[in-house]
Amino acid sequence: MSGNENGLDQRIKAYFDNLFSGVGASQQLFDLKEELTINMKERIADYRARGMDDEQAFKEAIVSMGDLSGLVDDMRRLGQDTARINIYSSMANRISAGFIVVGVLLVLFGIFVMAMTYFMQMEGVAVAGNGIFVVAGGMLFTYGLLTRETDRKYAMNKVRAALYGLSIGSILFGIFSAAVTHFSVGETYVSIASLMVFFLGGVGLFLILALTGSDRRKPDH
């Protein structure tokens, strides 16, 4: 008999879990499920006392409860609100936004200065030299983007995000140093050599990170 009751408890739990599936977690949802569960158990016990078997009592209880969709909607709204508050008020996300903004501005600044010096017809090495802003901006942007928590994904941990930033920076720096070397030395093989060191380092680091990453997706999406 107690095995039976456990089975019924499982069914009730499964029923409410299914009813509220996809609803964002909140304290209210947790409490409501507990409240609904105990009341349903009591109702089923009443039906059984009237001579119904488990199966009948369970089905009858669900039908007699009535339409719970209004409650599901209430809970969904609550779940979304808490998720939104958690994401957008968090300090970490403001910091990440700062990194993204500064990163993008640095990249744009670098591109503008490069264009300017190019049209001022300055030496190639001076034009390429301003590419360092793009390198720095790219690193900050990468870090900011990965440490950001969104509706769908949790933020990456800071060390990992910083390593990603470093790998992107390294790849960009490889290209940057190749360009600078190309214009200052004028020998393509030297420039390929300097490209190779940083570029390979960056790609290697990127691959290691990409292949060892954990899933940051949120369960409800």
Binding site: R43, G66, D67, L71
Partner: peptide, 11 residues
């Protein structure tokens, strides 16, 4: 009065 209606009213 359906139980479902009650919970909405309680809230």
């Amino acid at each position: 009065l359906k139980e479902a209606t009650l919970y909405t009213a309680f809230r």
